[in-house]
Amino acid sequence: MIEVKEVSLRYRDGTLALNNINLTVGDNELVYITGPSGSGKTSLLKLIIGMEYPTSGTVKVMGQEISEEKSDELRSLRKKIGPVFQELKLVPGRSAMENVMMGIRFLDFSGQEIRRNAADALEKVGLSHKADSMVENLSWGEAQRVSIARAIARKPRLILADEPTGNLDHDNAVNILNILASFKQKDTSVIIATHATHLIENQKNVTIVRMNQGSISVEKRGGKE
């Protein structure tokens, strides 16, 4: 699913965000990327979705190399990804339902499927009753779930969630992580970046990627989930 080979990322201001990292993520895998703030978690996710491009090395997602020159391929790759952004990126002035639908209108769904997928996704995250509420009137936790609904309504092959538990209390954070983890399916992988390591201490059958100052170490945990 994802192949990161000897990748370094240096921003224009000279900051080295990733330093020669290697990572492979297969199908049907649940990956937690952990580490303190500034360790490179978000940078790694940005590389995977094509918001940034590696300074050196290669990133391949679903067989497609992430490269600035291949914008058409990148666009079709992004259609297969369900991103949950750290800052949510919901569109104000629209309801929860409209936000979810907006994220899937340009995918290969009919008009009926768009509405049905959006309604199903909101139901899965427990927000059916808030479907018509404007997103600016929702709590952070609810808005977070709308963002997840937008990601899963796309029926993606890869879900990328960047700090989905930020600003949430313990119960809500666990709830959000469980919702996201439940979408790990036969051909869908889920990657969650979080600095809340205490929430994943007891997780089984997952891959834990620990990041620190741009370097990584990988731990594959087996056992029953």
């Binding site: 992004r78 259609k79 297969k80 995918l107």
Partner: peptide
Amino acid sequence: DQIKTLRLLGAS
């Protein structure tokens, strides 16, 4: 902001 989000989601 909306345009950036749509691009990240793969909109043409």
